[in-house]
Measured scan of single mutants.
Amino acid sequence: MAAAAAAGAGPEMVRGQVFDVGPRYTNLSYIGEGAYGMVCSAYDNVNKVRVAIKKISPFEHQTYCQRTLREIKILLRFRHENIIGINDIIRAPTIEQMKDVYIVQDLMETDLYKLLKTQHLSNDHICYFLYQILRGLKYIHSANVLHRDLKPSNLLLNTTCDLKICDFGLARVADPDHDHTGFLTEYVATRWYRAPEIMLNSKGYTKSIDIWSVGCILAEMLSNRPIFPGKHYLDQLNHILGILGSPSQEDLNCIINLKARNYLLSLPHKNKVPWNRLFPNADSKALDLLDKMLTFNPHKRIEVEQALAHPYLEQYYDPSDEPIAEAPFKFDMELDDLPKEKLKELIFEETARFQPGYRS
């Protein structure tokens, strides 16, 4: 834990890192770190609560700039109880001085990944967590956004079992017609939660990839272990087919990539493993919904509104309290091709509203 900075004593240090967030945020305490930044909790002297502050230093890398800009653009436009918001952003007053960006968010005690390492969940908890994931996802999908990296560590939890989806750095506007060349190379989302079509096709992607990830998360809540822990690309596919069985001819016809289709045709026939054999203690309604989410063919996979209306979630289902976005989200430009200098300018502009004396 960093010592509390005395008023006016300059930035606090946390594990050798400068955290320049005073005077409003003090009493910093280390939480963890990701690929390009550290997260601390801090005391907000204005709202009198502890908050989470993520320090991001992305400006050396085009990919990190892209992810940072995506996350900020999306989260500043989203407003939903099951999606983490941005409360404040701290950065230098000029673009030349801006080396880091500090993002202030609600402090959540833990995440689903940490929880599943230590606790076996009751059916009631599984049901409530799944409902909140789908409630947040309904809003995301209504904005025409794909999260693309749903996994237990991106689901934040607090002691009252509130759940918030975080990390929109890989999110995209849904565009089933656009052929994202190089899709697989830039697709760094965790393999275990990846839909089979991501490994088999490169053309376009749809909201059904997020539903697949939610199915993987439900299976993990039922058993405290990942359902498809593939060691590499082909191993991942083999794990999936080992449980779902061989795809039907109709399902194979959806695979545009001939090499991928021929690979699947070359494999020995596998039978589907019954879900109640894998999860003998699970609620039968939970397994019915799991089956509809972990469907090989993305066109037959359940959609988020149908999933919310499934009998497993009937005690929570309330369409009048499951809000959607006001308007579909649009990125003005494809960020993939922009140089990091341009992305830095866009991050600077996007964060201006939090600067003292800002006038829109």
Score class of each variant (00 low, 15 high):
2 A>P: 11
3 A>R: 11
4 A>P: 04
5 A>L: 05
5 A>G: 09
5 A>N: 02
6 A>L: 06
6 A>I: 14
7 A>P: 04
7 A>C: 08
7 A>H: 06
8 G>C: 07
8 G>W: 02
9 A>W: 00
10 G>W: 14
11 P>I: 06
13 M>G: 12
13 M>C: 01
15 R>P: 07
16 G>M: 06
16 G>S: 08
16 G>K: 05
18 V>P: 03
18 V>D: 15
18 V>R: 06
19 F>I: 15
22 G>E: 12
23 P>A: 11
27 N>W: 00
27 N>F: 07
27 N>H: 01
27 N>K: 14
28 L>M: 14
30 Y>L: 05
31 I>T: 00
32 G>A: 03
33 E>N: 00
33 E>T: 07
34 G>I: 07
35 A>E: 11
36 Y>G: 15
37 G>F: 04
38 M>C: 15
40 C>L: 04
41 S>A: 12
41 S>M: 14
42 A>D: 00
44 D>C: 13
46 V>R: 04
47 N>E: 10
47 N>A: 07
47 N>G: 12
47 N>C: 09
47 N>S: 12
48 K>G: 11
48 K>P: 06
49 V>W: 10
49 V>E: 15
49 V>D: 09
51 V>C: 12
51 V>H: 15
53 I>V: 02
53 I>L: 11
53 I>P: 02
54 K>C: 01
55 K>P: 05
57 S>L: 14
59 F>L: 15
60 E>A: 14
60 E>V: 13
60 E>P: 13
61 H>C: 07
61 H>Q: 14
62 Q>D: 13
63 T>W: 10
65 C>N: 09
66 Q>N: 06
67 R>K: 14
67 R>N: 05
68 T>W: 12
69 L>P: 11
70 R>Q: 03
70 R>N: 02
70 R>G: 09
71 E>C: 06
73 K>E: 12
73 K>Q: 08
74 I>T: 00
74 I>M: 00
75 L>M: 14
76 L>A: 07
76 L>P: 09
78 F>C: 14
79 R>V: 14
80 H>E: 07
80 H>C: 01
83 I>V: 11
83 I>E: 01
84 I>H: 08
88 D>L: 06
88 D>K: 05
90 I>M: 00
91 R>F: 08
91 R>T: 01
91 R>M: 00
92 A>N: 08
92 A>W: 03
93 P>R: 00
93 P>D: 01
93 P>W: 03
94 T>H: 09
94 T>R: 11
96 E>W: 03
97 Q>T: 10
97 Q>W: 05
98 M>C: 07
104 V>L: 11
104 V>E: 09
105 Q>I: 15
105 Q>D: 14
105 Q>K: 15
109 E>C: 06
109 E>K: 13
110 T>S: 15
110 T>N: 13
111 D>H: 11
112 L>E: 09
114 K>D: 12
114 K>H: 04
116 L>I: 06
116 L>D: 06
117 K>M: 14
117 K>C: 13
118 T>P: 15
120 H>E: 10
120 H>G: 08
123 N>A: 08
124 D>I: 07
126 I>R: 01
127 C>M: 12
127 C>P: 05
127 C>G: 11
128 Y>W: 14
128 Y>P: 06
129 F>G: 06
129 F>L: 13
129 F>M: 03
133 I>E: 02
134 L>M: 13
136 G>I: 08
136 G>C: 12
137 L>F: 00
137 L>A: 09
137 L>V: 03
137 L>G: 05
139 Y>D: 07
140 I>P: 05
140 I>Y: 08
142 S>D: 01
142 S>C: 08
143 A>L: 04
145 V>M: 12
147 H>G: 01
147 H>D: 10
149 D>Y: 13
152 P>V: 01
152 P>I: 06
153 S>T: 07
153 S>L: 04
154 N>C: 05
155 L>K: 08
155 L>R: 03
155 L>M: 13
156 L>S: 04
156 L>D: 04
156 L>V: 04
156 L>R: 06
157 L>W: 04
158 N>W: 07
159 T>S: 15
159 T>E: 11
159 T>M: 05
159 T>V: 12
160 T>L: 05
162 D>W: 02
163 L>F: 01
164 K>Y: 09
164 K>M: 08
165 I>G: 04
167 D>W: 00
168 F>S: 07
169 G>H: 07
170 L>R: 07
170 L>F: 01
171 A>G: 06
172 R>E: 09
172 R>M: 09
175 D>P: 07
177 D>K: 05
180 H>F: 04
180 H>S: 05
182 G>M: 04
182 G>L: 10
183 F>Q: 04
184 L>T: 02
186 E>C: 02
187 Y>W: 04
188 V>A: 10
190 T>C: 01
190 T>A: 13
191 R>V: 01
191 R>D: 11
192 W>G: 12
192 W>F: 12
193 Y>W: 05
194 R>N: 05
195 A>H: 01
196 P>W: 06
196 P>Y: 01
196 P>Q: 09
197 E>Q: 08
198 I>W: 11
198 I>P: 03
199 M>W: 05
199 M>H: 12
199 M>G: 05
200 L>A: 07
201 N>S: 00
201 N>H: 11
206 T>M: 07
207 K>F: 06
207 K>I: 10
208 S>A: 13
208 S>E: 01
210 D>C: 05
210 D>W: 06
210 D>R: 07
211 I>D: 11
211 I>H: 10
211 I>R: 08
213 S>I: 11
213 S>Y: 05
213 S>K: 02
213 S>T: 06
214 V>W: 05
214 V>F: 11
215 G>Y: 10
217 I>M: 11
217 I>R: 07
217 I>A: 09
218 L>G: 07
218 L>I: 07
220 E>S: 03
221 M>S: 08
222 L>R: 11
223 S>N: 07
225 R>F: 07
226 P>V: 07
228 F>Y: 15
229 P>D: 01
230 G>T: 00
231 K>S: 02
231 K>P: 04
236 Q>T: 01
238 N>E: 07
238 N>K: 13
241 L>S: 06
244 L>N: 03
245 G>T: 02
246 S>A: 09
246 S>F: 05
247 P>W: 06
248 S>K: 03
250 E>C: 08
251 D>Y: 14
253 N>Y: 14
254 C>K: 04
255 I>T: 00
257 N>H: 11
257 N>P: 04
258 L>F: 03
260 A>P: 09
260 A>E: 06
261 R>N: 01
261 R>K: 02
262 N>M: 06
263 Y>P: 05
266 S>E: 02
267 L>P: 08
267 L>M: 15
268 P>S: 14
270 K>S: 09
270 K>N: 15
271 N>I: 15
271 N>K: 12
272 K>I: 15
273 V>G: 00
275 W>D: 10
275 W>I: 11
277 R>E: 11
277 R>S: 15
278 L>H: 08
278 L>S: 05
281 N>K: 13
282 A>G: 02
282 A>I: 02
282 A>H: 05
283 D>H: 08
284 S>D: 03
284 S>P: 00
285 K>H: 04
286 A>Y: 01
288 D>M: 01
289 L>S: 12
289 L>K: 04
289 L>E: 03
290 L>C: 01
290 L>M: 12
290 L>W: 08
290 L>N: 05
292 K>F: 07
294 L>F: 00
294 L>V: 07
294 L>M: 12
294 L>Y: 04
296 F>S: 12
296 F>R: 05
298 P>D: 01
299 H>A: 06
300 K>C: 05
300 K>Y: 08
302 I>N: 15
303 E>F: 04
303 E>P: 00
304 V>R: 05
304 V>H: 09
305 E>V: 14
306 Q>N: 06
307 A>R: 08
308 L>K: 02
309 A>P: 10
309 A>M: 03
310 H>N: 14
311 P>C: 02
311 P>V: 00
312 Y>I: 09
312 Y>N: 15
312 Y>Q: 01
313 L>P: 05
313 L>N: 03
315 Q>V: 00
316 Y>H: 01
317 Y>H: 01
317 Y>M: 05
318 D>N: 14
318 D>E: 14
321 D>K: 00
321 D>L: 06
322 E>I: 00
324 I>G: 04
325 A>K: 02
326 E>N: 01
326 E>Y: 04
327 A>N: 01
328 P>V: 03
328 P>G: 01
331 F>V: 12
331 F>M: 01
332 D>T: 04
332 D>W: 05
333 M>C: 06
333 M>L: 15
334 E>D: 15
334 E>T: 02
336 D>A: 12
337 D>K: 04
337 D>I: 08
337 D>P: 03
338 L>N: 05
339 P>K: 12
340 K>G: 09
342 K>D: 04
342 K>Y: 12
342 K>I: 15
342 K>H: 01
345 E>C: 01
347 I>K: 11
348 F>S: 02
348 F>M: 11
350 E>M: 03
351 T>P: 13
354 F>Y: 14
355 Q>W: 00
355 Q>T: 10
355 Q>G: 08
356 P>Y: 01
356 P>V: 00
357 G>E: 10
357 G>L: 10
357 G>T: 01
360 S>I: 13
